[in-house]
Protein backbone atom coordinates (compact mmCIF):
# COMPACT_ATOMS: atom_id res chain seq x y z
CA UNK A 1 0.00 0.00 0.00
CA UNK A 2 2.46 2.53 -1.16
CA UNK A 3 0.72 3.88 -4.26
CA UNK A 4 -0.28 7.55 -4.15
CA UNK A 5 -3.91 6.58 -4.63
CA UNK A 6 -3.77 4.18 -1.70
CA UNK A 7 -2.17 6.76 0.56
CA UNK A 8 -4.89 9.20 -0.38
CA UNK A 9 -7.53 6.59 0.27
CA UNK A 10 -6.19 5.81 3.75
CA UNK A 11 -6.18 9.54 4.48
CA UNK A 12 -9.84 9.73 3.51
CA UNK A 13 -10.46 6.69 5.70
CA UNK A 14 -8.80 8.35 8.71
CA UNK A 15 -10.57 11.66 8.13
CA UNK A 16 -14.00 10.05 7.79
CA UNK A 17 -13.52 7.87 10.88
CA UNK A 18 -12.11 10.84 12.77
CA UNK A 19 -15.25 12.86 12.08
CA UNK A 20 -17.71 10.05 12.90
CA UNK A 21 -17.70 10.81 16.67
CA UNK A 22 -18.43 14.51 16.00
CA UNK A 23 -21.24 13.58 13.65
CA UNK A 24 -22.76 11.28 16.26
CA UNK A 25 -22.35 13.89 18.97
CA UNK A 26 -24.16 16.37 16.74
CA UNK A 27 -26.87 13.85 15.92
CA UNK A 28 -27.43 13.01 19.60
CA UNK A 29 -27.57 16.71 20.43
CA UNK A 30 -30.11 17.30 17.69
CA UNK A 31 -32.20 14.42 19.02
CA UNK A 32 -31.95 15.64 22.61
CA UNK A 33 -30.08 12.47 23.54
CA UNK A 34 -27.09 13.90 25.38
CA UNK A 35 -28.63 13.44 28.81
CA UNK A 36 -29.33 15.89 31.61
CA UNK A 37 -26.28 18.09 31.07
CA UNK A 38 -25.52 18.26 27.33
CA UNK A 39 -22.81 20.92 27.63
CA UNK A 40 -20.86 18.94 30.19
CA UNK A 41 -21.18 15.89 27.96
CA UNK A 42 -19.93 17.69 24.83
CA UNK A 43 -17.11 19.19 26.85
CA UNK A 44 -15.90 15.87 28.21
CA UNK A 45 -16.37 13.97 24.93
CA UNK A 46 -14.43 16.50 22.85
CA UNK A 47 -11.76 16.50 25.55
CA UNK A 48 -11.41 12.72 25.32
CA UNK A 49 -11.26 12.91 21.51
CA UNK A 50 -8.54 15.58 21.60
CA UNK A 51 -6.44 13.45 23.91
CA UNK A 52 -7.02 10.28 21.89
CA UNK A 53 -5.89 11.88 18.62
CA UNK A 54 -2.98 13.63 20.30
CA UNK A 55 -1.74 10.32 21.69
CA UNK A 56 -2.37 8.61 18.33
CA UNK A 57 -0.26 11.25 16.57
CA UNK A 58 2.53 10.56 19.07
CA UNK A 59 2.17 6.83 18.39
CA UNK A 60 2.86 7.14 14.64
CA UNK A 61 6.65 7.30 14.83
CA UNK A 62 7.07 4.38 17.28
CA UNK A 63 4.67 2.31 15.17
CA UNK A 64 6.52 3.20 11.99
CA UNK A 65 9.87 2.20 13.43
CA UNK A 66 8.61 -0.98 15.02
CA UNK A 67 6.74 -2.20 11.93
CA UNK A 68 9.15 -0.79 9.37
CA UNK A 69 6.17 0.67 7.47
CA UNK A 70 7.57 4.06 6.61
CA UNK A 71 4.43 5.20 4.79
CA UNK A 72 2.75 5.58 8.20
CA UNK A 73 4.50 8.95 8.55
CA UNK A 74 2.27 10.29 5.81
CA UNK A 75 -0.79 10.04 8.03
CA UNK A 76 0.70 11.79 11.05
CA UNK A 77 -0.22 15.33 10.00
CA UNK A 78 -3.86 14.37 9.54
CA UNK A 79 -4.05 12.69 12.96
CA UNK A 80 -2.40 15.73 14.57
CA UNK A 81 -4.82 18.06 12.83
CA UNK A 82 -7.75 15.98 14.09
CA UNK A 83 -6.41 16.44 17.63
CA UNK A 84 -6.18 20.20 17.07
CA UNK A 85 -9.65 20.27 15.55
CA UNK A 86 -11.25 18.51 18.55
CA UNK A 87 -9.23 20.75 20.88
CA UNK A 88 -10.78 23.78 19.18
CA UNK A 89 -14.30 22.32 19.49
CA UNK A 90 -13.49 21.65 23.18
CA UNK A 91 -12.38 25.27 23.71
CA UNK A 92 -15.38 26.65 21.84
CA UNK A 93 -17.72 24.51 23.95
CA UNK A 94 -16.06 25.77 27.11
CA UNK A 95 -15.89 29.46 26.23
CA UNK A 96 -19.15 29.95 24.35
CA UNK A 97 -21.56 27.33 25.65
CA UNK A 98 -20.25 26.85 29.18
CA UNK A 99 -19.05 30.37 29.99
CA UNK A 100 -21.27 32.30 27.55
CA UNK A 101 -18.14 34.22 26.44
CA UNK A 102 -17.95 35.89 29.85
CA UNK A 103 -14.32 37.02 29.54
CA UNK A 104 -13.83 37.92 33.19
CA UNK A 105 -15.14 34.50 34.27
CA UNK A 106 -12.78 32.82 31.78
CA UNK A 107 -9.77 34.87 32.87
CA UNK A 108 -10.38 34.16 36.54
CA UNK A 109 -10.88 30.49 35.68
CA UNK A 110 -7.49 30.36 33.95
CA UNK A 111 -5.90 32.28 36.80
CA UNK A 112 -7.40 30.32 39.68
CA UNK A 113 -7.57 26.83 38.24
CA UNK A 114 -4.30 25.24 37.08
CA UNK A 115 -6.10 22.57 35.04
CA UNK A 116 -7.71 25.22 32.86
CA UNK A 117 -4.40 27.05 32.39
CA UNK A 118 -2.81 23.72 31.41
CA UNK A 119 -5.55 22.91 28.92
CA UNK A 120 -5.32 26.35 27.35
CA UNK A 121 -1.52 26.06 27.15
CA UNK A 122 -1.75 22.66 25.49
CA UNK A 123 -4.04 24.03 22.80
CA UNK A 124 -1.91 27.19 22.55
CA UNK A 125 1.11 25.00 21.79
CA UNK A 126 -0.84 23.02 19.20
CA UNK A 127 -1.85 26.18 17.29
CA UNK A 128 1.58 27.01 15.75
CA UNK A 129 2.10 23.33 15.08
CA UNK A 130 -1.19 23.15 13.17
CA UNK A 131 -0.34 26.31 11.21
CA UNK A 132 3.13 25.09 10.24
CA UNK A 133 1.94 21.61 9.36
CA UNK A 134 1.80 22.37 5.60
CA UNK A 135 4.47 21.35 3.08
CA UNK A 136 5.07 25.04 2.38
CA UNK A 137 5.95 25.72 5.99
CA UNK A 138 8.22 22.69 6.21
CA UNK A 139 10.18 24.12 3.23
CA UNK A 140 10.16 27.65 4.62
CA UNK A 141 11.48 26.59 8.03
CA UNK A 142 13.79 23.87 6.77
CA UNK A 143 13.44 20.29 7.94
CA UNK A 144 15.65 20.57 11.02
CA UNK A 145 14.07 23.73 12.40
CA UNK A 146 10.58 22.43 11.61
CA UNK A 147 11.30 19.24 13.49
CA UNK A 148 12.64 21.15 16.47
CA UNK A 149 9.50 23.30 16.59
CA UNK A 150 7.27 20.27 16.33
CA UNK A 151 8.94 18.59 19.29
CA UNK A 152 6.74 20.96 21.30
CA UNK A 153 4.01 18.37 20.78
CA UNK A 154 5.57 16.40 23.66
CA UNK A 155 4.88 19.34 25.96
CA UNK A 156 1.33 19.63 24.61
CA UNK A 157 0.83 15.92 25.38
CA UNK A 158 2.13 16.31 28.93
CA UNK A 159 -0.05 19.38 29.56
CA UNK A 160 -3.10 17.67 28.11
CA UNK A 161 -2.71 14.58 30.31
CA UNK A 162 -2.11 16.74 33.41
CA UNK A 163 -5.21 18.76 32.52
CA UNK A 164 -7.19 15.52 32.37
CA UNK A 165 -5.73 14.31 35.67
CA UNK A 166 -6.45 17.47 37.62
CA UNK A 167 -10.15 17.62 36.74
CA UNK A 168 -10.92 14.29 38.43
CA UNK A 169 -12.59 14.22 41.81
CA UNK A 170 -11.49 10.79 43.00
CA UNK A 171 -11.68 8.24 40.18
CA UNK A 172 -8.33 8.35 38.39
CA UNK A 173 -8.66 5.19 36.30
CA UNK A 174 -8.79 6.92 32.88
CA UNK A 175 -6.14 9.52 33.68
CA UNK A 176 -3.86 6.68 34.77
CA UNK A 177 -4.39 5.05 31.37
CA UNK A 178 -3.53 8.41 29.75
CA UNK A 179 -0.36 8.78 31.81
CA UNK A 180 0.77 5.23 31.03
CA UNK A 181 0.22 5.60 27.28
CA UNK A 182 1.96 8.97 27.15
CA UNK A 183 4.83 7.70 29.30
CA UNK A 184 5.29 4.67 27.02
CA UNK A 185 5.36 6.92 23.93
CA UNK A 186 7.87 9.33 25.45
CA UNK A 187 10.08 6.65 26.97
CA UNK A 188 10.19 4.93 23.57
CA UNK A 189 11.71 8.09 22.12
CA UNK A 190 14.36 8.40 24.80
CA UNK A 191 15.17 4.73 24.34
CA UNK A 192 15.25 5.04 20.52
CA UNK A 193 17.62 7.98 20.76
CA UNK A 194 20.24 6.10 22.74
CA UNK A 195 19.77 2.45 21.85
CA UNK A 196 20.64 2.58 18.10
CA UNK A 197 23.78 4.61 18.83
CA UNK A 198 25.00 1.88 21.14
CA UNK A 199 24.34 -0.62 18.35
CA UNK A 200 26.16 1.52 15.78
CA UNK A 201 29.26 2.01 17.94
CA UNK A 202 29.39 -1.70 18.65
CA UNK A 203 29.49 -2.34 14.91
CA UNK A 204 32.16 0.26 14.28
Amino acid sequence: MTGAGDIRFVKVLIAVNGIVPLAMLGWDWNQGNLGANPIEFILSTTGYLTLIFLLLSLAVTPLRKMTGRNELIRFRRLVGLLAFFYGCVHLITYSIFDKSLDLSAIVSDVWERPFIALGMSALGIMLPLAITSTNGWIKRLGGKRWQKLHRLVYLAGIFAVLHFWLIQKSDFSWPIVGVLVLAALLIYRVWAKFAPKAGASAKA
Binding site: N37, A105, S108, I167, K169
Partner: peptide
Protein backbone atom coordinates in the same frame (compact mmCIF):
# COMPACT_ATOMS: atom_id res chain seq x y z
CA UNK B 1 -15.88 30.43 48.43
CA UNK B 2 -14.60 28.93 45.17
CA UNK B 3 -13.69 25.28 44.90
CA UNK B 4 -10.25 24.53 43.35
CA UNK B 5 -11.92 23.06 40.28
CA UNK B 6 -15.21 24.90 40.06
CA UNK B 7 -16.11 28.50 40.60
CA UNK B 8 -19.12 28.44 42.89
CA UNK B 9 -20.33 31.86 41.75
CA UNK B 10 -22.64 30.39 39.12
CA UNK B 11 -24.43 27.15 38.38
CA UNK B 12 -26.10 25.45 35.46
CA UNK B 13 -29.69 24.54 36.17
CA UNK B 14 -30.26 21.16 34.54
CA UNK B 15 -32.48 21.76 31.52
CA UNK B 16 -31.07 25.25 30.89
CA UNK B 17 -28.10 26.30 28.76
CA UNK B 18 -26.84 29.48 30.40
CA UNK B 19 -25.62 29.84 33.96
Amino acid sequence: VPHPRWSQATERRIGEYGR
